[in-house]
């Protein structure tokens, strides 16, 4: 679901920022640094994919008890 993926985006971005910060402190053993780098790379890719997935915003109108498609904009 798109909603879950957005939640994941926020967490993934936070995790990515944490990883970069940890790596920047620079006193990690090499194996740990490489592992964190790989994790960060995967997160960056995932975030990127999540951001790219939606092309057009979905608009609904709460008309009565149900949601209807919001009429497209007329030019």
């Amino acid at each position: 679901m798109a909603q879950e993926q957005e939640l994941k985006f926020e967490e993934a971005l936070k995790r990515l920022e944490t990883l970069v910060r940890e790596l920047e402190q620079g006193d990690l053993p090499l194996e740990t640094a490489v592992a964190k780098y790989n994790e960060g790379l995967a997160l960056a890719k995932r975030c990127h994919d999540l951001l790219k997935q939606a092309e057009e915003v979905v608009v609904k109108i709460a008309d009565g008890e149900t949601l209807q498609d919001f009429p497209k904009q007329r030019e």
Partner: peptide, 14 residues
């Protein structure tokens, strides 16, 4: 919202 963040849904409460 469509331009900045199309990942969100918009629900209009008329």
């Amino acid at each position: 919202i469509g331009r900045r963040w199309p990942l969100a849904r918009i629900i209009v409460y008329p």
